[in-house]
Design a protein around this nucleic acid. Sequence first.
DNA 1: TTTATTTTAATTGCATACAATTTAATTTGA
DNA 2: TCAAATTAAATTGTATGCAATTAAAATAAA
Lengths: 153, 153
Amino acid sequence: MSFEEALKLENQTCFAVYACAKEITRLYQPVLKELGLTYTQYIAMLALWERDAVSVKELGERLYLDSGTLTPLLKKLEAQGLLTRARDAGDERQLLIRLSSAGKALKEKALEVPEKVFCQSGVNVEMLLKIRSQMGELMTALQPVGAADQRGE
Amino acid sequence: MSFEEALKLENQTCFAVYACAKEITRLYQPVLKELGLTYTQYIAMLALWERDAVSVKELGERLYLDSGTLTPLLKKLEAQGLLTRARDAGDERQLLIRLSSAGKALKEKALEVPEKVFCQSGVNVEMLLKIRSQMGELMTALQPVGAADQRGE
DNA sequence: TTTATTTTAATTGCATACAATTTAATTTGA
DNA sequence: TCAAATTAAATTGTATGCAATTAAAATAAA
């Protein structure tokens, strides 16, 4: 591919992924609105439904988000009564996020989200699974770059 | 897959794409910093290098961005001297975006961006092409949903 | 122990994103 | 023609997203 071709928008894999990510969150939006959640709030709740009483740091590592994003987001979820934020008694640096009963209860309503979104999309299961595995491959291919610093390389 | 499994973070294709998109822009960031551009500004310039003197609307359709995002972004690029913003004489509603000589000249420096980013990533060409075509498929599968309104369905 | 370093969140500042509304210009229709 | 509807940007308001800095707490090291 020529340098010229390499700059065309339609040839950018980065743009394809970027555009898809936005389109996907757009698809979720109306469904999540029924739960009173934004997309980012939804994935935060997904993480908490899997593992409760975690620190902001752990949550951030799982969601690839830092405290700059999570602190205000978690404050909003706290204001909605879905979770509590309290310092860890053993290590006051850490803030433990715990689901409230309302937060746990919301999971029941969320159970139908994946199917609803899937039905609204024109995607079949095979494509979905293929994409997920491919994104996983891509992520592991990209991650070492940033992770090298942490390992001191 | 059970409803329970369907809510696990690692099973979310949406999250996989969302996380990859962020990781990709992170990868571009240091390379684009040398050009004085953010990722979104970069894809806007890519579009303009392909076709100059376009309206905000046309640019928005190609980038999947609306005027709420583009107006401030284009004002910044104008302030950097990369483009001009002027109403279309034929239709005063439209704002025509035109590259300045500096904006056109920047393309030369940008020619090496794709390769630089590619080399920094641990991705091979095959994976890249496969992902791009898959994202294209996904986009067309998702687009009809939103596009139906425009077609009046 | 007591200072230096590290760790964890919060904060600050900047740049998106996008829904909803507003404004100005153009086109449609009665 | 001229009011109604439509279109294109800009604006407003809310919610991310992240780099960089700050503050507080814990750990390491001298």
